[in-house]
Amino acid sequence: MTISTLSDWTGEVGTVTIGATKADGGTRSGTVTIGGERDLAFIGNPPTGNRPLIAYELCDDPSLWPAPVIRFLGDRASDPAEWARFAAGEYRPDLIRLYLTSTRKRGFSAFAAITTTVENILQATGLPLIIEGSNDPELDSEVFRRIGEAGEGERLLIGTAEAGRYRSIAASAMAFGHLVIAQSPIDINLAKQLNILLREIGLPHDRIVIDPYTGALGYGFEYSYSVMERIRTAALKGDDDLAMPMISSAIDSLTVKEVREADPSASDRTSVAWELYAMLPATVAGASIVCVRHPSTIQPLKAAIEALWSPPGGGA
């Protein structure tokens, strides 16, 4: 007898490809594919599916961004295109995730700037992109149409659809050939429900990435960790409505008390620790894309994922 783990899953997580190269009608220098797991990543045998990826998050209005990152980056943060170019070049994330935080200021109406910003980011980096639009129903229609148009052909991953607010995002994905992040508040059944709603308006499952919502370390992270494990095992047990790859971003990591109040000399290190200690667990729980904001988190997170997903002696 050789002792190893027992697994008798019947389901499989679908795959999603983000980005389009010239051959596919886009301008990305490469594409990335996530999902495809037929087992939990760490159960027996070589890992199945695609290894988790790191998205680096930035924004178009740094006044709504965590202070440690802005301190670290200095002037670079004032221009999202320069920011993206710098992060992609120096720190090598797998994707760039742009938050259009400008739309979250009261009285926002600079819709034309959205088109310009998205176009500039597309020029600044060849990495596949994730774009986060507004979170105000009043603005959604115009904002997501602009994002969709500006990125037509690029197979963007667009966020964030929620149960009460998904039509514009789905419309943008369907009209301009993009993908959708579907977020539910740490609840497996609501995640499933949203996926069904999206399917009903015509968005197929292979264009959805689940965001189960991630609380920061020490601030509800455990709920997110477990709901990701549950979503993933449900998919492996054959629940097709949950068999999409997941994205996890503990967006409050760098604004929690521990990081905010860290000694200035330890600010960067604390930022990295708070991101690493949430995002590596997220990959273990089943997330396919994990997101960070401090550039210095990328390298240690990448090394850890590399080590975790590499069986000794090569393999898959």
Binding site: S141, A170, A171, M174, A175
Partner: peptide
């Protein structure tokens, strides 16, 4: 047409 389709899905 794309924009039109967008508005239909979007519900506007």
């Amino acid at each position: 047409l794309r924009t039109l389709g967008y508005s239909l899905v979007d519900g506007s």
